[in-house]
């Protein structure tokens, strides 16, 4: 249960435009301020999710991502910079987010999700956004989110295509139930444009905002599939079992 936090006058000024959205208002903004979100990882997808949630006024973000910035990150990982090459990804991301929103509480964890840290990281937040490239991490996070009763927004991409859905405890299956096995042919590095990761990242952030504030209709029991090569968008209905 998210405990709403009252806003300061500065926050009312910053979030004025989105508080004009019908149904959302100051009540929705107070819920965002009281919310915490885990994002794993903060690359092409997760970096955009984190940036949008920081801009929207989510109170606390937990960022999990190991390693340093590489040249091949820079086509899509918008929280990384050329100056940051060779430096910690998660520290670079935390710095950029604080520049955008100095009121944001950021916890930078320089680790990817694994068996040893998943329970504690998922347990420390209200909602999880899964942007990880490996199915081992994704399944670990999904199992924890399900067992701890946490909602999880699932974002994925490949070439010019993307998939997005939202899992809710007691209402939907989670990723490890939708795909009971990891695809053996999947590799950590794959073809994709930054504009594709950015598009699905923005949509994933909007799903998180909807679930936290209780507005709109999250993608539960449905998989949004889109192909920016053909600008084709479909909502696929997922089976019950």
């Amino acid at each position: 249960m998210i405990e709403p936090k009252s806003l300061t006058d500065e926050e009312r000024a910053v979030y004025e435009w989105q508080m004009w959205v019908p149904e959302f208002g100051e009540e929705g903004q107070e819920k965002l301020k009281g919310a915490s979100v885990l994002i794993s990882r903060i690359g092409g997808l997760g970096g955009v999710v984190a940036y949008e949630l920081a801009a929207a006024g989510v109170g606390r973000l937990v960022l999990a991502h190991a390693g340093d910035v590489k040249p091949s990150d820079l086509n899509r990982q918008l929280l990384m910079t050329h100056d940051g090459l060779g430096k910690s990804r998660v520290e670079s991301a935390a710095r950029r987010l604080r520049e955008l929103n100095p009121r944001l509480e950021v916890e930078a964890v320089a680790e990817n999700i694994n068996e040893g840290n998943a329970a504690a990281l998922v347990g420390s937040v209200d909602l999880v956004v899964d942007c990880a490239p490996l199915f081992e991490e994704r399944f670990q996070m999904n199992r924890e989110a399900k067992s701890q009763g946490k909602p999880l927004v699932e974002c994925a991409m490949y070439e010019m295509e993307a998939q997005l859905t939202t899992f809710l405890p007691g209402e939907t299956r989670y990723l490890h139930e939708l795909y009971p096995e990891k695809p053996e042919w999947w590799k950590r590095e794959f073809p994709v444009f930054g504009a594709v990761s950015g598009a699905v990242g923005c949509m994933g952030a909007m799903e998180a905002i909807k679930v936290i504030s209780g507005i709109g209709e999250p993608l539960t029991g449905e998989l949004l599939v889109f192909d920016l090569g053909e600008m084709r968008f479909h909502k696929m209905k997922l089976g019950p079992s």
Partner: peptide, 8 residues
């Protein structure tokens, strides 16, 4: 037909 994909 849709194969499982991930993030990055």
């Amino acid at each position: 037909f849709m194969s499982a994909i991930a993030g990055g």
